[in-house]
Design a protein around this nucleic acid. Sequence first.
RNA 1: GCCGAUGUAGCUCAGUGGUAGAGCAGCUGUUUCGUAAACAGCAGGUCACCGGUUCGAAUCCGGUCAUCGGCUCCA
Length: 620
Amino acid sequence: MSYEQSHLYRLRHSAAHLMAQAITELFPGVKLAIGPPIENGFYYDVDPPKPIKEEDLEKIEKRMRELSNLKQPIVRLEAKDRDEAKEIILSECTLGQGEDTALYKLQLLEAVPAGEAVSFYDQKATDKQGQERRFIDLCRGPHVENTSEIKHFKLMSLAGAYWRGDVKNKQLTRIYGTAFETKEDLELYLHNLEEAKKRDHRLLGRELGLFMFSAKVGPGLPLWLPKGTVLREVLSDFLKQQQLERGYDGVVTPNIASIRLYEKSGHVQTYRDKMFPFMEDEEKETFILKPMNCPFHIEIYASQMHSYRDLPIRLAEFGTVYRYEQSGELAGMLRVRGFTQDDAHLFVRPDQLLEEFKGVVDLMMVVLKKLGLTEYRVRVGTRDPSSDKYVGHDENWQLSEAAIIQACQELGLEFEVSPGDAAFYGPKLDLIIKDALGREWQMGTVQVDYNLPERFELEYIGEDSKPHRPIMIHRAPFGSLERMIGLLTEQYAGAFPFWLSPVQVAILPIADRHVAYAERLATMLRGYSKPGWQPEGEGADATPPSLPFDGALRVHVDDRRETLGKKIRENQRMKIPIMLILGDNDIENGTVGIRSRETGDLGAKPLAEVFKMLEDLQGE
RNA sequence: GCCGAUGUAGCUCAGUGGUAGAGCAGCUGUUUCGUAAACAGCAGGUCACCGGUUCGAAUCCGGUCAUCGGCUCCA
């Protein structure tokens, strides 16, 4: 049974009504808009006569409990026709608080499809003082049978939300709440929410020394710390290797460009409010900070003649772009103003489009698998026919939308089509992944573009010796390093897999006299002095171990004068996958104590055995 | 940008009109230690910033900035 058909869903819908009833009692004259159940609860959008503050939530919640205890039966009513529905809205639903309180409900009535029944849900009871308490709302339903069923709920937060989601409309007050069938379920949900907050990449980013923000640098402009930089580099190296295997060519382009480039591409016209302020040089030439890499790659393509035999041409760049996101939209590393896309642009012939598109999707799947991301949604963003923000010919839009859908079908990919989620120049396929708090973010993306090749009059010479227009595929499997690393931090709760961990091995000398040995071991594991190293100490000479692989591990020696317990605790908190513990016994016996982040103490083992374990870990 | 909230030491937080506090981190000293926090001492703050009310403001009021939860928008 789907969530929408469940009792819980009905319960939450009814909880929204109960909240609305409490609000109409506490804020007479409030205009009610909509109040649906959502994934983890419900909300109601209201337009109150005076602002609702967070401290009001407690009062509303208290009033809801009182109304719940009145055991109001919830009854469905159906209007005979629209006139009667309108009559009910204006008389009953307003509860004597004035006809203008029905403002949004009347608009909702107009939106009910012609053939559909117009229903209301009515809840009422008489309280101890003999007063009738009543609430009736235009609603499709269904609901639970009695308000007394709504017992385990909590109001969560306040927000502004535009009527019908349109910035041009009035901003209403949205009140979020959640409700469950049992006390235990509610408590579990709240507990899980607290746990999820501990996985927040903003918290872990600071604790683990990955990245930071500084008010002096500016909002949305991250500073990458040494350990976060390792994540960037390891991820980049992995993708570069994949791209090398798949015939991509790397390019590097500047961070600013003449505005003329972006006028030609159409970005200035459609993207201007997302660009940082323009800058002018002494010759009055205007430059802009680049919001997208594509025009540069196009210039590279256009710089020479191409034969149909050269195609596809795949130009890849980890390109840093700057977009002036609205201040309220910034969200740690998941939404910043300067970020690096793992970008590439493929210039392909029409007969190559499908295969190349599929190749890109295949690469994205390889990336997801490597990163251990299994929970994701594939969204095909198409044009919203009613919007004018798109550029390009209708037939090209149809061709590219068809190509994307065909590719998905041939790959057996589960996907959903989402009109209005296309880029302004073409449709796209996006990977959507949730963060720790359940919010969805667009990660990897592939976009088909007929428009830019046309604007820049790109050509290749075909078999027929005549010029033809290539098609472009824009793609970024990670999306951006910032967003991907922020998200991975939450996915792993900071405990990155071995291959990705900024520090893979921490060596913990027990006392000062073991530090030199620890340093030598670290040097060896880093791969610096592979031949010729021997451990010190008696017994060790009998079995001089050699590193059975290239090393290249990221090793840190914790040489602080602290107790072993403290070092273990702190390295565990830093989520280091492997700790190697060295003391007199180890030096004497040619062993080392090994401790795993996941399973704890594994005991002392001969160096050769430890090396083998590390080699295996590195190979995974 | 808009709605709501928050802002005290590097971090986590206490302090509701009367001399700015704790733990951790840092520094110094002692301890040289075998699997999740040794001991002692010291130092550290224009209470985000600007203005106002007051004899007196971390505390009350106004503005600004940043951050957080949403809306809109997006990699």
